[in-house]
Design a protein around this nucleic acid. Sequence first.
DNA 1: GAAAAGATCTGCT
DNA 2: GCAGATCTTTTCG
Length: 183
Amino acid sequence: MMDLQKFFDRSSVEVARALIGTELIFGGAGGIIVETEAYEPDDPASHSFRGVTPRTRTMFGPPAHAYVYRSYGIHWCLNFVCRPSSAVLIRALQPTSGLPEMEERRGKTDPLLLCSGPGRLCQALAISAEQDGLPLSQPPFSLTPPPLPPIIDVGTRIGISKAMDRPWRFGLHGSVHVSRKFV
DNA sequence: GAAAAGATCTGCT
DNA sequence: GCAGATCTTTTCG
């Protein structure tokens, strides 16, 4: 297990880049993180931009914790908290563990889409509001850094309506598991 | 108290 | 490629 306290005590942009290639396991299922997005304190697209609310209180808490929120009333999205009021959205994984469980939770679908997208990822790993605020340093979470520094793609974030020009989306170069291709 | 927007996914055309 | 599903949170009156 790596030094999570030090790892997450940086800007979300740095953490988002550093997370690419890291293996995330949650309760026996998971895979390699291939796509992330950074949300900064002074970022109009971030939930934390308009101050603390009941939903976003976790984002203002200590680093190295999970922030889970409901999206579009249907999906769950998993974030890692960095320095207070900033976080990294985990958008896609390359599955490596617990494939049968994830396939069962996701139902019949294209294998490539098992964890390709924040909503799909949470459904595959069975993550919901109960995991909001949990520390990443202990089970059921497990993070393992890559043996070698990966090649990283950079692009603009997806699905937002503000600050759309900031290049804060990161991906593993050449991965077929990203939710949308990098150009 | 009411209304609108939202860090999305799926299915159909 | 586009619209619908679906509901929580936040903002406005």
